[in-house]
């Protein structure tokens, strides 16, 4: 059903039930997302897409648009709330961009640029989460994981349908885990898929490091905003 919604005072005609972040992007309004993937069921884990919907703060990727919905994206208060969430993710893990293989193609880093983060307002925690080298083709840099659960939900063993990645423990003890047997059975394309799926540098392919020159890396060629807004020449 055709409906009208309002985003930051702009009236938008769209279809009922569509995902808010998509409707916004089509109309040139960038809402930062991190765990969200187009055409995949929404995870709603990272909360970076927080917007105000009819007066309440909601994760924009979980919201289906409805008749006369009033959405606030870029007010100072809501924008600062999103920035605080990104800062919390940076403070909670060890995100040492200069030494990270994923730098320049890391979605967390790209979101940090988009929300204008220069420093985290929260104390940096320097969590000790030992890396996992047990699998043959993949290693996990656990202190970079932001627990978006993309890999947990989307990476499955082709034969059994079992999950390859999981999260153990809870709270600050939570760790990303890998099933070594299933991981070693992953074909090379699936390994690459898992590495690309990870929005940070937590899932990495062994024997491959800094394989793209600075200046030619994903988000340097086209920014995350350009990719999200589908600016000409850029794609997600």
């Amino acid at each position: 059903m055709s409906i009208q919604i309002t985003i930051d005072g702009m009236e938008i005609n769209t279809e009922e039930g569509r995902t808010l972040v998509e409707v916004a992007a089509e109309n040139g309004v960038y809402i930062p997302t991190l765990c969200y993937l187009r055409n995949q069921s929404c995870l709603g884990t990272c909360r970076v897409c927080a917007v105000r919907v009819n007066g309440n703060i909601s994760a924009g990727c979980t919201v289906r648009v409805g008749k006369d919905m009033v959405v606030e994206v870029n007010s100072a208060e809501v924008a600062d709330m999103r920035k605080a969430i990104v800062e919390m993710l940076f403070a909670e893990g060890n995100h040492n961009c200069p030494s990270c293989e994923k730098s320049g193609r890391c979605q967390l880093q790209a979101v940090g640029y988009e929300v204008g983060m220069t420093v985290a307002r929260f104390p940096y925690r320097f969590e000790k989460r030992p890396p996992e080298f047990a699998a043959g083709k993949i290693w996990l840099e656990r202190d970079r994981c932001i627990f978006c659960q993309r890999c947990v939900n989307l990476m499955r063993d082709a034969a059994s349908g079992k999950k390859i990645f999981s999260i153990s423990n809870r709270g600050h003890r939570a760790r990303i885990e890998i099933d070594v047997g299933l991981a070693d059975a992953m074909p090379p394309e699936q390994v690459k898929q898992a590495v690309d799926l990870c929005p940070v540098g937590a899932i990495l392919e062994k024997r491959i490091g800094y394989d793209e020159p600075i200046g030619q890396r994903k988000y340097e060629v086209h920014s995350l905003r350009e990719r999200t807004l589908n600016t000409e020449g850029a794609s997600s």
Binding site: H95, P98, Q109, Y113, G116, T118, I214
Partner: peptide
């Protein structure tokens, strides 16, 4: 003001 075009962490 540090715009996103020149704000880099690496």
């Amino acid at each position: 003001d540090l715009p996103s075009s020149i704000n880099r962490y690496d």
